[in-house]
Design a protein around this nucleic acid. Structure first.
Lengths: 109, 109
DNA sequence: TATATTTATCGTAATATTGCGATAGATATG
DNA sequence: CATATCTATCGCAATATTACGATAAATATA
């Protein structure tokens, strides 16, 4: 079918899975890392930096925007992107909570 | 095309994206959380717990196994799954490193 | 106003993912 | 040995993702 059965999972599980999905592509990882490295807004340099077509990058930026991770500000003919600190914190905390839940107890088979 | 251009990204970026992908489905999140909650191996109870068909769960387990996150031990007619502590730690550290890299500097547009 | 620059969107093709029924394979149990 | 139980795999259908050329929309510049 190809359609995830979200209704049988909790909101938290669905949300966490969606967060993972937002970052489950090397281009989106690279975009985020580029924004972090720049320590500021990045206005249109992304197409030169990554080796993907402009349309493709625009699509990935849209997904990151939909995920809330980045925000774009129109600046003349170009658009400046930066990370949304608030959402970033939410992601960080959700991931931390998930990974901290497991403690190795050495009682495994 | 539908084929990710891994060759234009770094190994780390590709690996991190793949890690995210392994957890980018609520069923796989639920399976991992179930293993954590059990604090031990889980042998075949997963099909009853989740509302998915046996074939579907087997497929998700396979993906988690391919990702290295879980390991299965044959126990009679059933298979017991548990989290691989070593790989879990690697995931945790990779995610931590990624999220720690960004510091909000309030110099955004 | 005409042209250049930049980004978003549309349409399309190729591939991947999700889900499940059917079935095969392995190991218990009668 | 026959049967039951449990898991993996195959095959299929529906949907999603990835990538890109073409084009539209918006703004700057000559």
């Amino acid at each position: 079918m190809g359609l995830t059965k979200t209704e049988i999972f909790t909101d938290k599980q669905n949300k966490l899975a969606q967060m993972m999905k937002a970052l489950a592509h090397p281009a989106r990882i690279a975009i985020i890392q580029s924004l972090i490295k720049a320590q500021a807004c990045v206005c249109g340099d992304l197409v030169d930096e990554l080796g993907l077509a402009q349309a493709t990058i625009s699509q990935h930026l849209k997904e990151l925007k939909n995920a809330g991770l980045i925000q774009g500000t129109i600046e003349g003919t170009s658009v400046c992107y930066c990370i949304d600190p608030k959402v970033w914190k939410q992601y960080k905390e959700a991931f931390d909570t998930f990974f901290v839940a497991y403690k190795n107890k050495d009682n495994c088979c």
